[in-house]
Design a protein around this nucleic acid. Sequence first.
DNA 1: TGGTGGTCAACAATGATTGTTGATAACATG
DNA 2: CATGTTATCAACAATCATTGTTGACCACCA
Lengths: 142, 142
Amino acid sequence: MRTPDELTDLFRSTGRKVTPQRQCIFSVLYGDVTHPTAEAVHAAATAHMPTISLKTVYQTLHDLSELGEITTLDLGTGTARFDPNVDDVHHHLVCRECGKVRDLDLEFPDVRIPAGSELGFEVGSAEIVFRGRCHECAGATS
Amino acid sequence: MRTPDELTDLFRSTGRKVTPQRQCIFSVLYGDVTHPTAEAVHAAATAHMPTISLKTVYQTLHDLSELGEITTLDLGTGTARFDPNVDDVHHHLVCRECGKVRDLDLEFPDVRIPAGSELGFEVGSAEIVFRGRCHECAGATS
DNA sequence: TGGTGGTCAACAATGATTGTTGATAACATG
DNA sequence: CATGTTATCAACAATCATTGTTGACCACCA
Ligand SMILES: [Mn+2]
Ligand SMILES: [Mn+2]
Ligand SMILES: [Zn+2]
Ligand SMILES: [Zn+2]
């Protein structure tokens, strides 16, 4: 994801208007590595702008996703997660207990995309999801 | 997944009651390779038993999942998919257009589960999801 | 400085899934 | 087979994340 200032320009140049709410969301997301839910983004934004609505958060996340500035992840935790790290290909570790998501910056050369003709399926992307228990949850219970 | 008859015994031996509705769902799921949604299972069951309710389908799917006879898949298509193929480790191809799910019976030795200590994360499982376009959708549009 | 059209936030609706409940059916026991 | 106990059925309502609607408001261009 680009910097909040660059996103301001990008929104203007793509015919979108720039509002304080949107800029607030830009700065909340910038550098965030927690893969927040829409609720979490809203909570963080509310700290700076108490009246911002959850709908506005959803709208802006949708716009950012459309522009390719963030990725929407459905990792089976019940709610969508948003990832501003779109520049590096990476995979994810998901805690089965608390739902926390961490990046895994490893490459898996084996996971080659098979040619479409051999499968009857044109493959466009491959995601690997590792599920387990995060450090905090492992420490909490025996 | 075991045969409907074996499932009947399994349900009885685990203190669950066997009803015609449940047996109907057993036979609908047995040998199904389409990774159906709860709605799809309900539709197939309704063909044999018009009065069966969607709630009963959810309940039975939940029981089968608890017993390890089926797997519940959340592949980001908005609805859960149910997979009676629990004996072979395999991965999935998901059509971005129609949501169809196909098995991919390949092994990826590269996708080794990293040791927990190096990551601060105890990894239990790894799933690979390939997204793209199925044969039918590729043929339909140019 | 308007005018125009996009955005805001409150409210209501959606769709998948789950909770509740009275009536009904399965199972063990005799 | 009769009988009581307990689980299940299916209709109904509730939940949760997300999306649609709408009137008031604000950003941008001439
Ligand atoms: Mn990430
Ligand atoms: Mn499968
Ligand atoms: Zn955790
Ligand atoms: Zn398709």
